[in-house]
Amino acid sequence: MDTPYGSAPKPVWERPEPQPRAAPVPLSREKIAATAIRLADAHGLDGLSLRKIAKELGVGPMRLYDYVINRSELLDLMVDVVYARIAEVSQHSEWRATVLAVAHATRAAALDHEWFSDLLGGRPHLGPHALAVGEATAAALSQAPGVRGIDDLQRAVGALNAVIIGAVRREVTERRTARSAGTDEAAWQASLGPYLTRMLETGKYPTVARLVIDGAHLDAEETFNHNLATVLDGITSHPHT
């Protein structure tokens, strides 16, 4: 059957829920997504599959295909559930407050659901809640004093996303490394420590040496807030001509 997308099926958000079936376990996309999120929170995305979700729900895997065509659609549903949480905080009367609320909610969501950070920065998220967050953010940035037209707005959205996505992905990666490193991390540091010391003592890398020797371990939340404020201050300023 032809659709607005040619022969391809409508996106999962536009397809109606399948009719309820006389089965011991009732299903819905909401229930499937919630189960998938719980599994991904515990085991990450690598171990997530429709078969495992079906087992968790106590149904046959083929029943899930009535609700989602493939794993990609499942991830779309999961991501939009997280965006629903972010969307709840995105309405403020002042543009900067809106942007800060979205940024902090995105970071909090990524720390609660680490797999979410793995899906940021790739293809655009187009679910209804993701679009709501995108609209709130873009509308807020369009009110910034330094944003004079669509080109400025595109650059502002891009800069903000780069800071948020880069920060949360790095923070999640560091958390994962800290959890899993153990003796491997200690062994890695012990093996490369002497090499790094020799290289820094050559005097060829004075700024790197300062960072390694004098630099403190910065608090992730404080750094996030500082970098976010720096970007918003830049957006607020009128662009140079």
Rank of each mutant, 00 (worst) to 15 (best):
I164T: 01
I164V: 14
I165V: 15
A167Q: 10
A167P: 03
V168H: 01
V168Q: 00
V168C: 02
R169M: 05
R169V: 01
V172M: 01
V172K: 01
V172E: 00
T173G: 07
E174H: 06
R175Q: 10
R175G: 07
R175E: 04
R176M: 08
T177N: 05
A178C: 03
A178S: 12
R179C: 05
R179A: 11
R179E: 13
S180Y: 12
G182Y: 06
T183I: 10
D184V: 13
D184A: 10
D184L: 14
E185H: 08
E185Y: 12
E185Q: 11
Q189E: 11
A190V: 03
A190D: 13
S191G: 10
S191V: 11
S191A: 15
L192G: 06
G193L: 08
P194I: 08
Y195T: 15
Y195N: 09
Y195W: 15
T197P: 00
R198T: 09
M199S: 04
M199P: 00
E201P: 03
T202Y: 08
G203M: 06
G203R: 09
K204I: 06
K204T: 05
Y205M: 06
T207R: 14
V208Y: 05
A209I: 02
R210D: 10
R210Y: 04
L211S: 04
V212S: 01
V212R: 02
V212K: 02
I213F: 04
I213A: 04
D214H: 10
D214V: 05
D214I: 06
D214F: 03
G215Y: 07
G215I: 08
G215K: 11
G215N: 10
A216L: 10
A216Y: 07
L218F: 09
D219Y: 05
D219I: 07
A220S: 14
E221P: 03
E222F: 09
T223Q: 12
F224I: 05
F224R: 01
H226T: 14
H226V: 14
N227P: 00
T230L: 14
V231N: 03
L232E: 03
G234A: 07
G234S: 06
I235W: 00
I235N: 00
T236S: 14
S237C: 11
S237E: 15
H238L: 15
H238D: 13
H238Q: 14
H240K: 11
